Computed example of a mutant assay.
Amino acid sequence: MARILIVDDDTAVQATVRLLLERAGHSVVTAGDGRKGLSLFEKEDFDLLFLDIFMPGMDGFETMRLAHQLRPLIPIVVISGRPISSEEGAAPDFLTMATKLGAVSSLQKPFKPAALLATVTSCLEAAKRLSSSSSHAPGGVASCP
């Protein structure tokens, strides 16, 4: 199956996502902040990156920017526990912002196990189709729901 990196400062989220993905047959590596995650991302090969947006030190936006520079074809799924509000004057929708900046998909915490697994499956399939397609544009990134 796939090799997946999870970067999240919440150890409970790390453990839960890791357990779900390992039960589905994936190999999982975790990091507690953006700098550690980026260091692992530089040294090892991954098929998918799960990235929390809000972490101390290097946040998910900066980590995503640097990860894209290193390996632009690796799909990134952003996750966040910040509420999404459509009220005027409320905080911006950071998940949507992240997808506009290069993440292929997003999940609002807490998410259901089925939503996590469906996202992983669709992102990995989209990335595989993109890598096997000879007609894709250079620098293209797989998009998935």
Rank of each mutant, 00 (worst) to 15 (best):
L66C: 01
D93P: 03
L48E: 04
R82C: 09
R65P: 07
F50V: 05
V29C: 10
P56L: 02
P92L: 05
K43H: 15
F50Q: 00
D59H: 01
D93A: 01
E88I: 00
V29I: 14
E88W: 03
F61C: 04
V104L: 11
R82E: 15
G25E: 08
A91N: 07
G89R: 03
A103G: 01
A91G: 11
S86V: 11
A90N: 07
T16V: 15
H68G: 11
G89S: 00
R35G: 09
M64Q: 02
L107V: 08
V104H: 09
M64A: 08
P113S: 07
G37E: 02
F54V: 13
L107M: 06
A91Y: 05
L48W: 03
E22I: 00
V78T: 15
M64L: 10
R35W: 10
V78R: 05
R23S: 11
K43M: 14
T96K: 06
R82M: 14
E44L: 13
F61P: 01
V28G: 01
M55Q: 05
E62N: 03
G102K: 05
L49P: 14
A90K: 03
V77Q: 01
A31L: 06
D33A: 03
I76N: 06
L73V: 11
A15W: 07
V78F: 10
L38G: 03
D45N: 11
K100H: 13
M97K: 14
R18C: 13
L38V: 03
E44T: 13
L49C: 15
G32K: 10
E22H: 04
L49Q: 12
Q14M: 12
A67W: 05
D59I: 08
F46Q: 11
L48Y: 04
L70P: 07
E42F: 02
I79T: 14
R35Q: 15
G81V: 09
T63E: 03
E44Q: 15
I84P: 04
R35C: 12
G57N: 08
A98I: 02
Q69A: 13
G37Y: 02
K36N: 13
I76P: 06
G102P: 06
E44H: 12
G37C: 04
F41C: 00
L40S: 13
F54L: 12
A98G: 02
